[in-house]
Design a binder for these strands. Structure first.
Lengths: 235, 235
DNA sequence: AACTCCTGTCCGGCTGGTTGCTGATTTTTG
DNA sequence: CAAAAATCAGCAACCAGCCGGACAGGAGTT
């Protein structure tokens, strides 16, 4: 069993899911009627389940967590979105209005732009290149989400955690003195909610990885010394 | 812990992820230069990892399985695509050509249309409504994939299996005399590969569900008597 | 009829979930 | 700014659930 493509290139320039031309989309969306530039502090809710799904968002910087909350109070993470991700995609579907079913929260300080789905449609009609950009942005989302599915089908938690860490490196990694630092403040609980495990297990496994010398954790910031080595951790 | 929205509506008319206007997209894509109508028998490979990613596919009828094969020979399912799904999405990304990393196989007899990504781009430039359609199609994919992530984060296999069966009802369910039949021929192995478990466990859990009177299996075709009841199976 | 693929079942062993507690760290508040 | 509160990390004990491997009988194919 192997892991998401962490080739040497993905550490530096980025891989295929970086392809969205976020910059261009930004200026396009900014020009739409009803668009707005939104800022949110860590922990602030962007939309709630049950809210009408009207706007589409483009994350400019920071991270957004999409999650589902169950009656039991349990919460699972459906996606951890990074820069240049499109979200609020539900609103793009057919005219008949529907409601959000996910909870979107700013996972870090966040800067994003949003516009009503109707404006997006009009903009596409007016300028075909908008459609092209949207198409690429959504393709990226599909590919990223599929990587996460790969992560989640690993049977042992150790592989799952490692695979997830590599995804985080891809999406939120910044080069550090030694290795790559994941530019997020991740509690063990939040990791558990993303990989479908429990806090206790994540604590144990991260401890193992640390004592193996694969990573360092400083104030909730994880630094992976050698992603390639990490991806080879298992046969 | 609850389950994907299987409201009474989703049994009959279909839910939000049905929204893609597949019919319209079909005629559009058919008209593109380089497009083709492809038929494939069950089990036939559509593309392989390493193939150049050039074409985009729209599944007209049948089911396609996207999977990743590991060196160990192990195989996991990344997506089970249904009618009107767009796939081969990797080819839509930026110009620099890249290779497939998934294996696409016809899971049933399949009818699909495909066109080079370049033609799609040109078509969008020429007619903005193509961009609109593509956008909707891709949004659907995102939402469907996210549902699958929800399924995979359930911690106990029983919940995971149930959740997956409900997804299959949504995507491949046809009304039967009593309940809904999943219009696929699913081996226990293939289910295991989709939910990240093993054949033996799937056999056992399906057996449990059967003896509880939740479903019937006849020649690999699963009939769920009452999806709503099934979704309530756990507190 | 021979073959392949699939289902069903058994059992030993271990992973990982659960619960409960403690001390550390961070955030809030007076 | 310090005290109080909340959140978080680490540890231990228990045990259910799942995996792994193995095998036998069915179902479907050629």
């Amino acid at each position: 069993m192997s892991f998401p493509q962490i080739s040497s290139s993905s550490q530096t320039s980025g891989n295929v899911t970086d392809a969205i031309a976020g910059g261009t989309l930004t200026t396009i969306i900014r020009g739409l009627s009803g668009s707005s530039l939104d800022l949110a502090e860590r922990g602030k809710t962007i939309f709630l389940p049950g809210d009408p799904a009207e706007r589409v968002y483009l994350l400019r910087c920071g991270a957004v967590r999409l999650s589902r909350v169950y009656e039991s109070g349990e919460e699972i993470t459906v996606a951890l979105l990074r820069e240049n991700s499109l979200f609020g995609v539900l609103s793009l579907l057919t005219g008949h209005r529907s409601d959000r079913f996910y909870h979107a929260v700013a996972f870090t300080r966040v800067e994003m732009i949003s516009a009503p789905a109707t404006s997006i449609r009009q903009a596409i009609e007016a300028d075909a290149s908008v459609g092209l950009m949207m198409m690429q942005g959504l393709s990226c989302r599909v590919l990223q989400t599929e990587t996460m599915i790969e992560t989640l089908t690993h049977r042992d938690m150790s592989s799952r955690l490692v695979s997830f860490l590599l995804v985080l490196c891809r999406d939120f990694g910044v080069p550090a003195e030694q290795g790559i630092t994941i530019d997020l403040r991740l509690s063990h609980q939040s990791i558990a909610e993303a990989i479908g495990s429990t806090r206790v297990t994540v604590t144990r496994l991260l401890g193992d990885l640390r004592s193996e010398g694969m990573l360092r954790i400083d104030r909730k910031e994880i630094t992976i010394f050698d992603p390639v080595a990490l991806s080879r951790r298992f046969s």
